[in-house]
């Protein structure tokens, strides 16, 4: 069954979009990430103009993060204090990211900025996580239990001034590195048109040693506000939000996200981190291959000067 998308001005199969929404929603619910970095390239591959793809799939991120955020809230798997702090830092980063986006586009260098950032971010984040996961597997094979937190041992950056106590996350840390990470995530998210959960989740896990049970809910809460802001900006500034496309993606996505969230409860923490590392590294490699291989079509066209 085909449906006409009024803003994208093209017709696509409803079932294909529902399936895409469900699949990305599942991954999003499973890992506590927005899933924008998966959905955007898929929509563009279907022929939907990039600006409309980026903007409309933000609505699905809003919906799935609402669901996951509420579910985490009920399970008390959400550190509101930490999430609020991250939201503040993230919004500042988003604002500056949008400014940088416009500046890079004006300079004609946006494409290379985006592709290189994708490759670098995904490869570095994914690679680090994979190494960490493998180490973890290796030591548990040898029977040693690596304690993730030893009393009195903290990385130096947690001891900077302005320390705050986050009971839920068993964290007593300076707000400076927390705001810094949130700022970076917001900035990169705005430039790359993604929610940034895939940076936030590993940062909370590895840099701040927040318990896995808290990470997903806290990250989803922050993503909810970041994606709401982005969706509004896209609708007002670019008029690029296709409500029909958004609606279908949401319907598919909310179901997928539910099953994903449920599956994440049955997933062992070390397996969770290993799979997330593989996913992120896989996307990074895909972009790297695209960058290195000789393209079959050297030319590309875009409307606008």
């Amino acid at each position: 069954m085909q449906i006409y998308l009024p803003i994208a001005e093209m017709s696509v199969s409803v079932f294909l979009l529902l399936g895409l929404g469900a699949a990305v929603g599942f991954i999003s619910g499973l890992f506590g990430i927005g899933g924008g970095f998966l959905m955007t390239p898929l929509l563009i591959f279907l022929g939907i103009p990039p600006a409309i793809a980026v903007a409309s799939q933000m609505a699905q991120i809003v919906a799935s993060s609402t669901t996951s955020g509420l579910a985490a809230f009920r399970r008390k798997a959400l550190d509101i204090k930490l999430a609020s702090l991250l939201t503040v830092g993230g919004l500042v980063g988003t604002g500056l990211g949008i400014w940088f986006f416009a500046a890079a586009r004006a300079a004609g260098q946006l494409d290379i900025v985006i592709v290189v950032s994708y490759v670098t971010l995904f490869s570095v984040v994914g690679g680090l996580m994979l190494v960490e996961s493998l180490k973890e597997f290796w030591s548990s094979r040898k029977g040693k239990v690596r304690s993730r937190r030893r009393a009195g041992e903290h990385p130096a950056y947690l001891g900077l001034p302005l320390r705050m106590r986050f009971h839920r996350s068993q964290l007593y840390a300076s707000v400076i590195p927390l705001l810094g990470v949130a700022f970076f995530v917001g900035f990169a998210g705005a430039v790359l048109g993604i929610g940034g959960g895939f940076i936030m989740v590993p940062a909370l896990l590895y840099l701040f040693r927040v318990p896995t049970s808290m990470v997903v809910g806290t990250s989803q809460f922050q993503i909810l506000w970041a994606s709401t802001a982005a969706l509004l900006l896209h609708a007002i500034a670019n008029q690029a939000v296709d409500a029909v496309l958004a609606f279908i993606l949401i319907i598919g996505g909310v179901f997928g996200a539910q099953f994903g969230a449920r599956a994440s409860r049955h997933l062992r923490a070390d397996m969770f981190r290993f799979l997330l590392a593989l996913l992120i590294l896989g996307v990074g490699l895909r972009f790297a291959i695209e960058l290195v291989l000789r393209p079959t079509e050297l030319f590309s066209i875009a409307n606008g000067g």
Binding site: A59, V62, A63, T228, L231, V241, A243, A246, I250, I251
Partner: peptide, 9 residues
């Protein structure tokens, strides 16, 4: 659009 997304979520 935001309200629709949140409602369905």
């Amino acid at each position: 659009t935001v309200l629709m997304a949140m409602f369905f979520g």
